[in-house]
Structures are given as C-alpha cells and as structure tokens.
Design a protein around this nucleic acid. Structure first.
Lengths: 194, 194
DNA sequence: CGCGACGTTGATTTGCCTCAACGATTGTGG
DNA sequence: CCACAATCGTTGAGGCAAATCAACGTCGCG
C-alpha cells in the first residue's frame, strides 16, 4: 500500500473503514525527493499537502536583501505546505526544500476537496493537525520574544534532539534567527561553561 | 437573539438550519467585559472559545523578567483563546485582557464538544478559522524575521489601520517586539522623513 | 582530486535596550 | 467637578547583543 504511512498517521486520530482507506489510497501520490530539491518555490501556488514519509524538509522565506530565513522543519510524520497559498490559491511567499533525500505522500487540492466531501472526519483530523501546527508556531513566537539566542538554542536542542543531530548548524542558526557565526560563539560558550 | 453576531459570523462560511441555530443559541453565553479585565490568566486552563462582539483584546505573555509581550490583538469579529491550553487542558502560558470595554460570546469546552457532535460542519468552520489564525501568525513570524522595526511598524499601520488608531503606542510597541521609547524614535524619523 | 559547503575566530559596527527624566493627557475617587 | 494619580508619549546618554565583513582550516561529495 503506497499510502500506508499516511493511513497510520490518520488512525492516530480516528479509526477508518476499509472503503475509506481505499478512497484515500486512490487520491494520493507517493514520490521520492532529492536532497536540495525544491517542492515549492516562492511565487508558485502551493498545490499539495505534503506528508513526510522519510527524510527532512525546511520551509524558508527569502527577504528583500536575498537572505534566507527558516520558518520550520518537517521530518517523518510531519505535514508541510504553505497554508495561505494552498487555501487562498495565491502565490506562495515561502519555499520548501528537501534537506535530505526524502520520500513524501502528497494530496492535490482537488483530491483533498473530494476527500473532504466523502470522508467527513477528515475535517476533524485536519482541524486538529492545523491546531497542532498553530501551537508549535505559537510556542516559537513565545520563545523568540522572550529569550536570548543562547536560551533559544538550548531549548531547540531539548525540543528537537533528533533534528539537531541531523541538521547542519547553518540551518539551525537560520531557524533561530541568528547568523552561523553567532551560533558558533554560543556553542563555544556552552562548551566552555561546563 | 443573544448569539446573533456569532451566527452571522458562522454563516459567512456555511449556511445553517433554524434548528442548528437554536442548538448553538442554547450552548453559548454572552457577557460584558470591563476595560483591563483579564478573561484568561496564565496558569489557568483556558475553558472558553471567546468571540469578540465589540471592543478589543490583547493576548500576551509575561517573560522571566516580568516583561509583557503582546502576541496578538482581537477586535470585533475575531476569535481569541489559547489553543494549546484549551485543547490539551493544560495551564495557559498566556493572558487575555480587554483593552476596551467589550462584549463577547463564549463557548465552554463541553458545549463546544457537544456542538461538534451534533453539527458536523462546525469542524469545517473551525478548521478554517484555525487556518486563518495560523496564516496571520505565520505572516507575523515572516515580518519579525525579515524586517527592521521601522518596516514592521509601517506594515502594521497598513495591515491594521483601525487597530492602530484605537491602541496606545505602548501596546503596539509590545506587539512589534520593541520598547515604547524606540517606537517613539521610529515615529519621529517617519514624521521627519517626509 | 578539487571545489563548494561548513564551522570557527576576530575586529568592527549597529539596531535596539536600559535607565532617567519630563510634560501632556486621561481617568477616577472624594 | 475638581485634584491628584496613573498612564502615555517623548527625549537623551550610555550600553549590550547580535550583525557584518574578512579570513582560514576542514570535510564530504561529485
């Protein structure tokens, strides 16, 4: 079953009938993504909900000076898509790029809407998924507002230990909103301070 | 009808039957909130979805040094509640305070779950409401990451002109993540620069 | 093997904060 | 309805966290 990881994910929220699973199976597609490949570029419309089966992605924006800023990471079991662009069908401000060779399951807009019509509990599931993503983003805002860079780095390590191992420090620095040079200084301080 | 503003809000998304409206009417409560009154304090569990009928609120956190940081504002037609605390039934990190004498319609947790069971399309509506809140927060993160304080202030003025008129600059400064003193400097620069 | 990505170090600069002070406005209790 | 307090906006001096720019060694990949 190509959609198996996705179905398992859904069943963490609610049980599904076999016919429902078959319906989903027929409306999703699975594919491999190469390291560094962009699955969404800014200016494009985000046409897919992307579920990460394996590997790792970053979502980032490029500012007026051409600098890249990571908004979030998504690894196995996470969803990644530009909510605004997908629903409003407007050009995306952000980019989504694979940081490792990855595998994903994608649902196109028309297929998602078809599934929403035929499997009502998907509304419930995606409501909860969106709520979870909201909470994650809100916690990030809390952190950024109220902590120094060092504190943010330490809580990133604590909260996402498996990501911290896999990601180059440049990507982490961009997520924390600091330069790689300054992250390097922070790491040095932490190492010497114990 | 005490719930009329809420029903109008819902019908911007989907039509409702009379029985459904009656069901909602019976499960919500409307009340006035005084200026400066807290409708959620950190440490408490957020037990209500709050819909703003009139007036204006801020959601803020207090950091380790006792400083307050505004996360968002909510005026007429907006929802305000701590998503994390409400759904996980955990103590809230944030506070919600009326900035003006206000009027709200609230739905308690158990009533919301009752309504979810009996009016399935509410899942759809709150999915969309949450998506809209997510987009707003994401745009805020984009702004904070990629702009100077002056640019952020100018785009706040452009995006929320009606809020900008009503709010004291101290509240706006806290939302922008800067001190009132520095906002004052920015305003001076903008005024002289034209 | 060679080139580009990565991590680190150091010197200098800058955006924003802190603290202190002061009028102007608002609001509230007597 | 006034008087006093609290809030608000502004200005200025000095300080700090983090950025910028430049340089260099290392590593992994093609």
């Amino acid at each position: 079953m190509t959609a198996q990881p996705l179905l398992s994910h859904f069943e963490r929220y609610l049980p599904f009938e076999e016919e429902e699973k078959a319906l989903i199976e027929g409306r999703v597609s699975r594919r491999k993504v190469k390291r560094r490949e962009l699955i969404l570029s800014s200016g494009e419309i985000c046409r897919y909900y992307t579920f990460v089966v394996s590997g790792c992605f970053r979502m980032y924006i490029t500012d007026a000076e051409g600098k890249e800023h990571n908004i979030l990471f998504a690894a196995e079991g996470d969803w990644i898509y530009d909510i605004d662009s997908f629903h409003a069908t407007t050009p995306s401000q952000s980019n989504i790029q694979a940081l490792e060779a990855s595998e994903v399951i994608q649902i196109a807009q028309k297929d998602l809407y078809y599934l929403y019509l035929n499997i009502l509990k998907l509304d419930r599931i995606f409501k909860v998924v969106t709520e979870e993503k909201y909470v994650e983003l809100q916690n990030r805002v809390f952190q950024n507002i109220s902590s120094t860079a060092q504190q943010r780095y330490l809580s990133f390590l604590k909260q996402y230990p498996n990501l911290a191992n896999r990601l180059p420090n440049t990507q982490i620095a961009s997520y924390l909103g600091i330069t790689p040079e300054f992250l390097s200084m922070i790491r040095k301080e932490i190492a010497s301070g114990q």
